[in-house]
Design a protein around this nucleic acid. Structure first.
Lengths: 361, 361
DNA sequence: TTGTAGGCGTTATCAG
DNA sequence: CTGATAACGCCTACAA
């Protein structure tokens, strides 16, 4: 079945092609007789007419496409963002061109070129670009919005996740519960580059604010695993590893995972260890408020980003506000908030486990 | 910065626009002097020339776009497929237009129209279409590949997940471990329409094959929850609910979740219940081999679909084989296999819990 | 209220 | 080997 063109419709309806265009687009400032319109619509339906978006784009320079760059699909945080962005975009008449960089810098730049080529009307980054200059350069042609940490130096419109505040929020929660020996567990360096640091900074700032010594905070960085990292297990492993180490060698009463996945690993380790209860003996929390944090019992205390609004804003900035026009750079601060669940509770003197004693003496 | 056209390049290089096109596309059957080619490439680079894909598409009728329809992003199975399809497509020079239907039939048909409009070169469905006729009709214009249950009546190219075999595989595993009272837990009807049934059929067939009475299999369908179903918790809840009921009211020694999410809910319930151990007292398994099944200890026995190959095939069918041409319909059967982890083990007489006694007498 | 004509940036045919 | 020139399908002055 050959595709019908607007000419075909015109012919069938017995009008000119222009008329078809006017009527089908309900172009403002023209009016037609009821009869003509009926005939055109009729003909269009009959021929199953669909306007050719290439031709349209060629004329209008709009693709109604938004490029979405995500680092990975394993941490459910990104699928969540993706789904929300996709849905809201669709509502606005835009489609999403998905690009998973797998955190590979070279992929990122390839995709950037590709998106430019495909003439997307806007680009959403869900992480901090590796090739900043490329992104900034491109942003003069195509509006770009960044969802991530705010970096003042970058002249890109940003929807800031405010990792610092997130860390502070969580730390404050734990400190108020009386915890004085806290740990922060990060997955191997490669994965969560910048956010992790901001979150850590936030935690540290609260520790200081409470007048506690630096040693009150232990930072555990998991060693990289050789296995295929694309399945996300390395995040969980990191949590498991970290908890294992911390239970044995420290007296921490609260552990913060760098994200919900890591937090799940931590809880899993503690549960399986069997010596301690969460939160009675040890409190655990994470970041991102993905469904993972609500999956197991106890449900995990975490930080929420109001991602529905976040995603909505990101799209709106692209399609409504004049982001990108004349170097117009917008920086919005997202207001994260604490979601207290049952994995955190008041501190209690933790009895050391038998094998921990060995380690101490 | 205005976008450069091939004409601009031609002017700068001092050749005709045609020459530019030939050289930049290395069109077969033409040859140019080394000097000319150098000049053209030089000029292109200098002007930062990017061919306009609207114009190109208008001419070639190829968008290098693949439409991907997924029901949701909450069950990690779909993000996993998405990522793999995206990556492999990118390798093949295609981009992915993502469409999340949220299992809403009306969304599906809207997206279908949209994809047709955007002139994607192919469409991948990761579920069974609600509007079959629409899909079939469209498949005469745009190649469509279905990843899902094979339905003989549908004249759409299909990559079959073979739910029947999956169910049989899992059931056989449990039966061989000696389990004689097995349960199957499904999330509320709305969500996983057809696959669940095929899986159940597979389980039943094995029960029969082993000469066991029908009652050896209990089927539990979770009641729908009123809360927002978009966060995926309803799947976990279903498992939790199911396990809760089954522990109290039946003597099952093995529980199969309709997917990994449900299985996680089941394990979580049993762990929290505290009366039973997995797999010592009760075996649990799921389907899909998402990272969820490996997340917690014990890791969950599940079914794997070799999704990397699956995704690769789906894309290849679209871009290589002549799927869609002259009604060419391909049906491929995927070979699922059992992934045995530590959540399943030999049956052991299960001691009834105190409150279960009440229920029995 | 309707039709004519030109052009968007490519690709591709066909002479030179 | 290279360069006019004609589509591709749509939008949009401008003319009628």
């Amino acid at each position: 079945m050959k595709k019908a063109t607007s000419r075909d419709v015109a012919k069938l309806a017995g009008v000119s092609q222009t008329t078809v265009s006017f009527i089908l687009n309900s172009t403002p400032g023209v009016s037609f007789s009821e009869e003509t319109r009926r005939r055109v619509h009729e003909a269009a339906k009959q021929l199953n007419y669909v306007p050719n978006s290439f031709a349209k784009g060629l004329k209008t320079n709009e693709s109604k496409l938004i490029g979405l760059l995500v680092p990975s699909m394993v941490n459910p945080f990104y699928p969540m963002l993706t789904q929300r962005i996709e849905n809201y975009s669709a509502l606005k008449g835009y489609n999403v061109l998905l690009c998973c960089t797998e955190r590979l810098p070279e992929r990122e730049v390839d995709y950037l070129n590709l998106l430019a080529e495909k003439l997307v009307d806007g680009i959403i980054y869900t992480f901090t670009p590796h090739y900043l200059k490329n992104a900034v350069r491109l942003s003069r042609q195509i509006p770009i919005v960044l969802i991530g940490e705010k970096e003042e130096e970058i002249s890109l419109s940003t929807l800031s996740l405010n990792g610092f505040k997130c860390g502070a929020l969580l730390a404050q929660h734990l400190l108020e519960l009386g915890h004085r020996s806290i740990a922060y567990v990060m997955s191997p360096v490669k994965s969560v580059s910048y956010t992790r640091q901001r979150r850590l900074d936030g935690i540290k700032s609260k520790i200081q604010e409470f007048g506690l010594p630096e040693e009150s905070l232990k930072v555990y960085t998991a060693r990289p695993v050789s296995s295929d990292a694309s399945d996300g297990l390395f995040e969980i492993d990191a949590g498991y590893q970290g908890a294992e180490y911390l239970l044995k060698n420290t007296d921490v009463t609260a552990i913060i995972g760098v994200n919900d996945m890591v937090a799940v690993g931590i809880v899993s380790c503690i549960l399986n260890d069997g010596h301690y209860k969460v939160p009675d003996d040890i409190s655990v929390c994470g970041f991102d408020n993905t469904f993972l944090s609500e999956m197991f019992r106890p449900k995990i205390t975490t930080i929420d980003y109001c991602s529905p609004y976040l995603c909505k804003f990101a799209v709106d900035m692209l399609v409504e506000s004049g982001v990108g026009e004349e170097g117009n750079v917008l920086k919005l601060e997202n207001e994260p908030h604490l979601v207290v669940r049952s994995s955190t509770g008041p501190v209690k003197a933790r009895s050391l486990r038998p094998d921990a004693l060995k380690a101490v003496f």
